[in-house]
Amino acid sequence: MPQPSRNTISFRATCLRALLYILFVTALMQGVDYEARDLSETHFTEIGFTEFTQTLLLALGVALLLYVRQVLKALPSVTLLMLAFLLASLIREQDAHLDTHVFDGAWQVLVTLVVLPSLLLVIRRRREFLAEFEHYADSFSFGLFASGFLVTYVFSRLFGRSELWIAILAENYARTFKDIVEEVTELLGYSLILIAIIELVMLVRRWQARP
């Protein structure tokens, strides 16, 4: 059996991080519970706990990716694509504010300005991107990021379909319930993505600590 390297995560460290992530997700769900019970004035609105926390998680993810890219100088092509993806999601979460205070459709314009140049640059540097991706794909961070993507952008959309909830609730159907289910599922997905980026920071630091 191969011996672990000095950069391998210990079982004790893994358990500690798992505990912290469990507490983090638990705190998020306690916030959702508090919003449902006590925040009637901002009950799952654009300025409510759930929507605000989604924005906060995305903003933290963007900041950490900038740290990896600009400070740690690691995976520049991979982190550029991840940055474009998270920044586009962050802009999308502000659609109501942008439509109201800037102009209708402002978020689509901003997302296009973020995504298109990033995609073109990654395509131009595709060899570097593929080489970096091979290193990143075989990691816990990538698995979490992929899980967060699937939860947020696939599962929540399918789980939040009006047709599904009309079939389940029949005459008791209310769009508010469907929207809450979708938003809370998105919150879970964003939390997984943030955890993945935290793991990416620690992964890069382990790489750089190698003799």
Results as ranks from 00 to 15, higher is better:
12 R>S: 14
22 I>E: 05
174 A>Q: 15
29 M>Q: 11
11 F>R: 12
100 T>Y: 08
77 S>H: 12
43 H>F: 07
110 L>E: 08
66 L>E: 04
147 S>M: 11
27 A>H: 07
121 L>A: 13
46 E>C: 00
156 S>I: 01
179 D>P: 02
2 P>C: 11
130 L>S: 15
88 A>G: 14
169 L>K: 09
120 L>K: 08
97 H>E: 14
104 D>G: 06
141 S>Q: 09
136 Y>A: 07
2 P>I: 13
76 P>A: 07
50 T>R: 01
51 E>Y: 00
88 A>S: 14
138 D>Y: 14
54 Q>K: 13
162 S>N: 13
75 L>K: 03
170 A>R: 13
34 Y>L: 12
177 F>P: 00
87 L>W: 08
67 Y>H: 10
165 W>P: 05
196 A>Q: 02
72 L>Q: 07
84 A>H: 13
186 E>C: 03
168 I>M: 10
168 I>H: 04
137 A>W: 04
24 F>M: 06
17 R>I: 11
36 A>S: 10
139 S>C: 05
39 L>K: 13
36 A>T: 02
63 A>M: 05
186 E>Q: 06
3 Q>S: 15
115 V>A: 10
140 F>M: 14
152 T>R: 01
204 V>D: 08
51 E>D: 14
160 G>P: 00
139 S>H: 05
103 F>M: 00
165 W>D: 12
